Structure formats: C-alpha cells, structure tokens
Amino acid sequence: MSEPSISVVVLTYNRMAQLIDTLMRLRALPERPPIVVADNGSTDDTVHRVAMLFPDVTIVQCGANLGAGGRNLAVDCVRTDYVAFCDDDTWWKPGSLAHAVRLLDAYPQVGILNARIEVGEARETDPISTLMQHSPLDATGLPGPSLVGYMAGASVMRTAMFLQIGGYDARYFIGGEEERVALDVLAAGHAIVYCAACAIAHHPSPLRDSALRRRMLARNAAWTAWQRLAVSDACRATARAIECFRKEGTLWQDGFALLRGLRWALRERRRVPERVAAMLAEVRLDARAPHRESLRSELPQRQV
C-alpha cells in the first residue's frame, strides 16, 4: 500500500465518551489516515482508555489545557504532507479526506480547505457553511469559493505551511483562534477555499461553556485586530469585546485580561497587506446586505 498523504489531528479535553465514538468513526474511514490525539490534560481517564482501545492512535499528552495550542504539539508528530483537523465531537465523512488530497495536489496555491459541516442526526448544513458557499470574493483559478476565514475543527491544511506560520497561539486559548492564522496564511500568499464536497459531521457536545466561549471569541477578535488590522478596526473590536464582558458580568476580570494582552499584541503587530485588507472589507460589506441578515441571525447559536 502507498504511504498516506494525510493525517488527522483530534483535539480533546475531558470528553472521553465523545472521543471514543469519534475515533471509531475515523478508524473506519477508507483513507485509513494516521490519527493523532492532542489531549489537553484530561482528568477523566481519556489517555488510558484511548491507549487501550486504539493502540494504533498516537496520543500527545499536552500536560495542561493549552486550548487550540494543543494542536501544535500534535502536528509536530504528523509525517504526511497534509493534516486534517477535527474535535472530539466531530469526524470526517468517508471519501472527504481523499478528495481534499486530490484538490491540494492539483491546486498548490491553496493552503487551507474548509469542509461543509453537517450538524446533528438530521445532518443539516451549518449556516456557517452556507455563508462560505456564497462568499463574495473572486475565486478565479480556485477549486471553490474563496474565504478570509475558516473553522479550525473542519479544516485541512498543508502541514509545512501550518508549521511555517507557527500554528495556533496558546495565549488565545480557544474561540476564534483561527482568525489570526487565516490572516497570516493569506498574507503569505496562500488561498483559503470552501469545499462542499468535503464533509465533516458535528454532534455538538453538551459539555461546553457557552458564556466562556462568547467572551473568548470577543477577546481574541480584539487581540487579532490589534496584531494584524488597522487601528480603526482594532478599536471597534475592542469596544465590542468590552460590551460583551459587560453583558456577561465579567467586565473587570475579562477587561483586565484583554488590556494585559495588548502589551504582547502590539509588540507583535504586523499589518496584513492591502490585498488582504481589501478582501476583508469586501466580505464585511457583503455581510451587511439584506439577504444575509436572516442567515447571520442563526450564527451565535451555532458558534458557542
């Protein structure tokens, strides 16, 4: 048999039952990809159970909850050209990884593919996927709609590119951690593409803190804006974050954390090229169109 071209990295923390189900589905894929689990310091016997049930799965023990940064340690173990990401409550559908490999082989300018997300037993297409399908950006020469962002747990990347840009920043923890990575990928000259033919199933775990996720999304968006975008964009993102903290009753705690993080965010500031800023502006303008309002109203429920 030929050597595999793609591996799967699964991020997990204290969701052993969901992880075991996901690993069973991933092992049954016809592509038979190598699987690497990044365990963010689980305390529910995850590591022992996975090692016992799936001896062929590589387990990376992060030693603590690094959030999205745990994926970096897992990718260090990847030996294939491409790496697909999922979480412990998502899994790739049969044939999707093989299709992703064919596209990435054929289109070297593409750095990231974002899969179509099917939610729950009803397999409804997530509204985020629908928005991506109707991206307003020019997709000439690309195998699908051009994007300025992607979903970390439903993406396929070039392994070398991921390592070159440095992966995810552990200081972001989790929630919108993809935004800065996406900007750096675009700035480096790679494209991000939506691929409806690649599908990932998402059965959202009930073990999640929605309020914390909302606050992390707001904080991380502000940090990313100060690191990569215009000052006006950064000020608006900061104002939105402060308003989020106020509504959640965590203004002092989260506001202080946001301001403290600005020290390193400004120190590492590097504006994206004008062509990337123009892409962002086009997407924002399209988002304000009347035909987008009903669809976007569904996003907060799906993003937590």
Rank of each mutant, 00 (worst) to 15 (best):
V276Q: 11
H190S: 13
T159Q: 03
T238M: 08
T250R: 12
I128K: 00
R32H: 11
V9S: 08
A74N: 05
D138W: 04
E274F: 08
A201D: 14
R208T: 15
A122M: 09
R215S: 14
S7H: 02
V75F: 07
S42N: 11
K93L: 15
R284L: 12
R213Y: 10
R158I: 10
R269H: 15
R228M: 10
A289P: 01
G67V: 06
L217C: 07
Y194F: 15
R214T: 04
T125L: 14
R267Q: 15
F54D: 08
V36G: 04
A139W: 00
A222N: 13
H134R: 04
G144N: 10
A222S: 15
V304R: 13
P30S: 03
L23G: 03
L19A: 06
M161E: 14
D21I: 02
M161V: 14
T22H: 08
V283R: 04
E268I: 06
A115C: 13
P94T: 01
I192P: 01
V57E: 10
L183R: 07
V83A: 06
L212M: 15
V57Y: 10
I112K: 04
E243H: 05
D76K: 02
L163P: 00
R228Y: 08
R49Q: 13
L229R: 14
L259E: 13
E274K: 13
L23I: 01
R246Q: 09
P204V: 12
A182R: 02
T80H: 05
Q253Y: 12
V50H: 02
S135L: 01
M52Q: 12
P33R: 02
P33A: 00
R292E: 06
T224C: 15
H134V: 00
A160P: 01
I128P: 00
